[in-house]
């Protein structure tokens, strides 16, 4: 898909250029979290928007990534990059293993089971005090560094996080428009027909589940090194719901929709800061109204409103 490549290049240029045009400090800081959330939303979208399998436990993988890296960094002597890789592979392997029983479930049952996984992980973060510091959190995590170059400022972390996000986006775009991605979308539309065509639905669902866990774990590692402090609330059930909201608002089954959703939902609470805690009311309204009136998400809804025609066909990135 030529136009996809172009879209990605354009997007990458914009992302890399943004810091040149915005004031340093607060906004850059917010955009770092847009990057992290984009990865998380992308991970969920591959699973939910493409393969049609819901997960309400994504925060668990995010948390496992963050605590994995955080604990290895504070309590063991291990290169943090190596730790990030090991943790991501470990979390993906864990997701792969639990994926077989979990993804045999469908619909509401799947939602509840993944939610259960999320809650158990959250409780474990709180209870394994020796390792994680429990509810009061884990501090003293170092910034990442390459040689003597330390990612210790917002602007450096911006480029760090967004390099990972851009690579994830590129790989995801490649994947969804190929044999594997078609298999996922086929499962979404008709699992039985997909299987009759030789698509190994069970395996592919588990694979994409593991992939989404992998991306989330990387995002978690980045998060812990950027923040240098983590606590369980960042990985609780509401975070999984927030990710779900991002994907629904941005656009299910759209790579850029994930980014758009992450952007909006990361900026929104910042804007709603004046009205403390209003965010979950807004999320609730958004989830309901988007599902009823704009099920394709903004990424399709805006162009559709614009051109008043059905969304572009043929491209799914």
């Amino acid at each position: 898909m030529k136009s996809d490549k172009l879209k990605f290049l354009l997007f990458a240029v914009v992302v890399l250029a943004i810091p040149l045009f915005i004031p340093k400090g607060y906004l850059t800081n917010v955009l770092i979290f847009v990057g992290i959330n984009s990865m998380l939303a992308l991970g969920l979208n591959l699973l939910l928007g493409y393969a049609g399998q819901i997960s309400l436990g994504q925060a668990a993988f995010f948390g496992l990534g963050a605590y994995g890296s955080g604990v290895l960094n504070t309590q063991y002597v291990i290169n943090p990059w190596l730790a990030m890789a090991l943790v991501a592979v470990g979390v993906a392997a864990f997701a792969f293993a639990i994926g077989f029983p979990v993804l045999r479930l469908k619909g509401h049952y799947l939602a509840m089971a993944t939610l259960g996984v999320g809650v158990i992980a959250y409780i474990s973060f709180n209870e394994t005090v020796d390792l994680t510091g429990g509810p009061s959190g884990l501090s003293g995590i170092e910034n990442l560094s390459i040689g003597s170059f330390v990612f210790d400022s917002d602007i450096k972390n911006y480029y760090l996080v967004w390099s990972f996000a851009l690579v994830s986006i590129l790989l995801a775009m490649n994947m969804v428009n190929s044999r594997f991605g078609r298999g996922l979308r086929a499962i979404h539309d008709s699992e039985v027909a997909a299987r009759v065509m030789g698509v190994n639905a069970r395996l592919m669902k588990v694979q994409v589940f593991a992939l989404s866990a992998f991306i989330s774990a990387i995002a978690g590692s980045l998060y812990c090194h950027v923040m240098t402090f983590i606590s369980p609330t960042s990985f609780s059930f509401p975070v999984s719901i927030e990710l779900l909201t991002m994907v629904v608002i941005g656009g299910l089954g759209s790579v850029f929709g994930s980014v758009l959703g992450a952007l909006l939902l990361t900026l929104l609470p910042e804007m709603l800061r004046a009205f403390q805690d209003m965010d979950i009311i807004v999320y609730g309204l958004l989830l309901i109204s988007m599902t009823i009136y704009l099920p394709g998400g903004l990424v399709r809804g805006i162009p559709a409103l614009f051109r008043k025609i059905v969304p572009a066909r043929g491209s799914h990135a």
Binding site: H108, M278, G284, L285, L286, I288, T291
Partner: peptide, 22 residues
């Protein structure tokens, strides 16, 4: 679809919770 219903009822749940909190 079941997916849409899950998302809607989740939306309703956090909406109700948010309103009560407010």
């Amino acid at each position: 679809t079941p997916l849409a219903l899950i998302i809607i009822t989740i939306g309703a749940s956090i909406l109700i919770r948010g309103l009560v909190m407010l």
